[in-house]
């Protein structure tokens, strides 16, 4: 029920090869950076906790691929990929996670708090549900300013059980706000399967309570994600209000670095590794006639970009001590 119906993903002839290759690049870079973050963690370069989105790249890349820089995006502590997909630099993202002064937030935010306002990435939030109301505000201001910019809000399956989710969807619907509520249903909230915490069949059904459309899609199909988000964005830009998207996906790793993910049934991870979103996009490109050499080139370029970013970030200094006292007030 929570698994892609088919391995192949449907092509979308309206997308040219360059658009597909661009999404592949973005997904590969996110995958590569998460691997580096994991590595950095084992070397004690990352403090506290870190939550990787490995396996969920199609969701963030597909959704952000239809946004403009002037559109807003907010996400969660599992937001490295979302922030990159919205346009943050690999080096500054990694630098933030290892606490350097060149990091997106000068090393003061950390892995759970990546913000790059310049590209419309208004934050990753570590309090479950906290950013859904904020997504509404971003959308409201855009409308007040006469712009057709939208607000894209990523959150997890577990977050649909918190009060802020329900208040925010209702308000967005009542005010017809240009918000896309994008639920990455990766089947677990921390160590608990989502079906143990909800009695609806599909989280997308929750949209009905608020009078907005709710769609459930294969979150490991970057084309499907792009299409669904594109439609929601179009609606939002046209002033027709918010949409709830439930993208079913899977995190390849545990909830956070301390989680060995023993609560997963045997074989589940292997089953999901088979529907790796990157492999599926590569396959689509191959059926379009993109050569294996070209795909390898892109893979190598992504690997190099990640390697350079990591090197650059690690050569940067930690924040000056005075930074501790700065930025409390405007």
């Amino acid at each position: 029920m929570d698994y892609p119906e088919r391995w192949e993903i449907d092509d979308d002839p309206s997308l040219d090869e360059a658009a597909l290759l661009e999404m592949l690049r973005a997904m590969l870079e996110i995958r590569g950076l998460e691997d580096e973050i994991q590595r950095a963690f084992t070397k004690d370069l990352v403090r506290g906790s870190t939550h990787l989105c490995t396996g969920q790249e199609a969701a963030v890349v597909g959704a952000c691929s239809v946004l403009r820089t002037t559109d807003s995006m907010v996400c969660t502590y599992r937001g490295h990929g979302a922030v990159l997909a919205k346009g943050a630099s690999l080096a500054a993202t990694f630098a933030e996670i290892v606490g350097r002064e060149t990091g997106l937030c000068g090393g003061k935010g950390g892995s759970m708090h990546l913000t790059d306002a310049g590209v419309g990435a208004y934050g990753s939030f570590a309090i479950v549900g906290a950013h859904l109301p904020i997504a509404n505000g971003l959308a409201l201001a855009a409308r007040q300013q006469g712009s057709d910019a939208v607000s894209l809000c990523f959150f997890g399956d577990g977050s649909t059980n918190i009060g802020a989710f329900h208040e925010s969807l209702n308000l967005a619907a009542v005010w017809s706000l240009p918000v896309i509520f994008f639920c990455e249903n990766n089947l677990y909230g921390e160590y608990t399967a989502w079906r143990a915490t909800a009695r609806v069949d599909r989280l997308a059904d929750r949209a009905g309570s608020y009078g907005m459309p709710g769609v459930r899609i294969d979150g490991n199909d970057v084309i499907a994600v792009r299409r669904a988000t594109g439609q929601a964005v179009e609606r939002a830009r046209a002033g027709e209000g918010p949409t709830l998207i439930e993208a079913v996906t899977y995190r390849h790793r545990g909830h956070s670095r301390t989680d060995p993910a023993k609560y997963r049934p045997d074989g589940e991870l292997e089953r999901w590794l088979k529907v790796d979103p990157i492999r599926r996009l590569e396959n689509l490109l191959a059926t379009r006639g993109v050569s294996p050499e070209r795909l390898q080139e892109i893979t190598a370029a992504a690997r190099d970009a990640v390697r350079d970013a990591v090197e650059e970030a690690l050569s940067a200094a930690p924040p000056r001590l005075e930074a501790l006292y700065e930025d409390v007030y405007a």
Binding site: G99, G107, K108, G109, G110, H113, P319, A323, L324, V328
Partner: peptide, 16 residues
């Protein structure tokens, strides 16, 4: 502690 939120980077948090 100073009148600031708790910062992330190791040296800053230690100073906090």
């Amino acid at each position: 502690a100073p009148d600031t939120p708790v910062p992330y980077a190791g040296a800053l948090e230690a100073a906090w």
